[in-house]
């Protein structure tokens, strides 16, 4: 990510423009495969097409949150050994969390709509949906913490600790919600009639996952660069302030 973007597209480089094009093509192809080519399911009918969006997005959301947690841990415990003071890890954590929240949102929207046709209601207190909504809100809080105006190092540390807290909480949330839904109301799990995934459906799902991953990577790279630009802007403003303090000093002396 150290290539020099040109001045016309501040966050783009040749590499990311290629990645962006690939992402666009991949999405179009994903639409074709998921909506037209792949067959309707025997049990779920057309509704099964929600699968190709729902499953890859939650996979990306989880992946992005894992990336956030690892970067945050590196930022907290390894930043002293880096010449940039760990800012790279901080930026990566922030951009991944934001992209993760977007895809967690996509998961919720598709999940609710899917639930409407298979369960008959938008919301079932299904273990997966409940975990996802809690995760979604947790990372909204994390992003709120990042948005607060503060010294970059202070803000980074605060956010990184919050990311670690959220990370250790993910398995706790997952298992408790899972227990909750399995310990009583056993029936609710079978309502979700997971389709047997075979043949064309399997390949479509696998391909969709790849396509969504490419899109998410493109987003994370660009968001990372925007964060770096924001930091550069703040640093330039700071340098100007120091310079003006010095000038003011000389003028008065």
């Amino acid at each position: 990510m150290t290539q020099v973007p040109d001045s016309r597209h501040m966050t783009a480089t040749t590499a990311t423009r290629v990645l962006g094009t690939v992402a666009l093509v991949a999405v179009v192809l994903m639409g074709l495969l998921g909506l037209v080519v792949s067959p309707a399911d025997v049990v779920q009918g057309q509704a099964v097409r929600m699968l190709y969006l729902h499953v890859p997005s939650i996979w990306i959301a989880y992946g992005a949150f894992v990336l956030t947690s690892f970067s945050s841990a590196l930022f907290l415990f390894r930043s002293r050994h880096r010449h940039d003071g760990g800012r790279h890890h901080d930026r990566l954590a922030g951009s991944a969390a934001e992209v993760g929240v977007v895809f967690a949102g996509v998961t919720l929207v598709t999940g609710m709509l899917w639930g409407r046709v298979t369960w008959g209601t938008y919301w079932q207190w299904d273990a997966r949906l409940t975990t996802t909504v809690l995760l979604f809100v947790t990372y909204l809080g994390y992003l709120a913490l990042r948005r607060l105006p503060a010294d970059p190092v202070i803000r980074g540390r605060r956010a990184a600790v919050m990311a670690l807290i959220s990370f250790v909480n993910v398995p706790i949330v997952h298992f408790s919600v899972d227990w909750w839904r399995t310990l009583h109301q056993k029936a609710s799990l079978s309502v979700g009639r997971r389709p047997e995934i075979t043949g064309e459906m399997y390949w479509t799902l696998l391909y969709s996952t790849l396509a969504v991953t490419i899109v998410a990577s493109w987003l994370i790279v660009h968001r990372y660069r925007v964060i770096r630009l924001e930091e550069l802007r703040d640093e330039e403003a700071l340098e100007a302030l120091i310079a003006s303090r010095l000038r003011e000093d000389e003028a008065q002396a």
Partner: peptide, 13 residues
């Protein structure tokens, strides 16, 4: 010594 607090250079050398 240069020190920055709240995005402002409180000490400037």
């Amino acid at each position: 010594v240069v020190a920055v607090a709240g995005g402002f250079p409180v000490l400037a050398g």
